[in-house]
């Protein structure tokens, strides 16, 4: 077999994590992107900046804050314990929460750009045809912004697959639960299992390349549109 069982397990876990995170971000990120694209509020700047924070923050900062706030003495940790969920660090759902934060701008920004490109006009036309705002959103804005959603989904998925620092800090490296592919590679390197590291690293490299290739081939050339 080309990859060991634990390698395959880590890949499967990584795909599962990235899928769940992408789904959640479609639901959470879309309203935020919609609001950012259409608001004239003076909060647009600050909220936009907060959304973009994970782009520039070192993963260690995010990991550190998450570990402390989700721990038994942190506010989030006390909340999850009170709700009977227990503590989030070292669990799959803990990674999901961390990744939702970490990949947030990769979902919001392309969707926001797409909504902005749709502009006011189609929605105004929809309104004159007596479409409710809700209707207009689902039948006009959403279909027009669909390419932006696809880009956002692919980027979010790929970025979550590429996550490492945050997972290392709050994951606890549990096989099948928090040991994602990037951490598995790191483990192989640390244990001096270089041939295992090479195999899994090559898989990740090819996967990342194919994702980006799909994105670039599929994205229509702006000159032709």
């Amino acid at each position: 077999m080309f990859l060991t069982d634990t390698d395959l397990q880590s890949i499967w876990l990584t795909l599962r994590l990235a899928s769940v995170v992408t789904l959640i971000l479609f639901l959470v990120g879309t309203p935020v992107a919609w609001w950012l694209a259409r608001t004239r509020s003076r909060w647009k700047g600050p909220i936009g900046a907060v959304v973009a924070l994970p782009l520039v923050l070192p993963p260690s900062v995010l990991g550190f804050y998450l570990l402390v706030t989700m721990g038994p003495n942190g506010p989030v940790g006390q909340l999850t314990q009170a709700l009977g969920i227990g503590l989030l660090p070292f669990t799959f759902w803990g990674l999901v929460v961390a990744s939702v934060f970490y990949s947030f701008p990769f979902m919001v920004q392309p969707v926001q750009n797409a909504f902005e490109a749709v502009g006011e006009r189609p929605l105004e036309v929809a309104a004159t045809l007596r479409a409710s705002p809700f209707d207009a959103f689902f039948t006009v804005a959403l279909p027009l912004a669909l390419p932006g959603f696809l880009t956002a989904g692919i980027l979010t998925f790929a970025h979550t697959v590429g996550e490492f620092g945050v997972v290392l800090m709050i994951g606890g490296n549990i096989p099948g639960v928090t040991r994602v592919a990037s951490v598995q590679i790191y483990d192989h390197v640390e244990a001096m299992e270089y041939s295992d590291a090479h195999r899994l690293a090559a898989v990740m490299l090819i996967f990342s390349f194919l994702v980006l290739l799909a994105l670039y081939l599929w994205r229509p050339n702006p000159k032709n549109t």
């Binding site: 570990l67 721990g71 038994p72 070292f90």
Partner: peptide
Amino acid sequence: FQFVSTGNA
């Protein structure tokens, strides 16, 4: 040590 000192373990 950090896992234990923060109480997460």
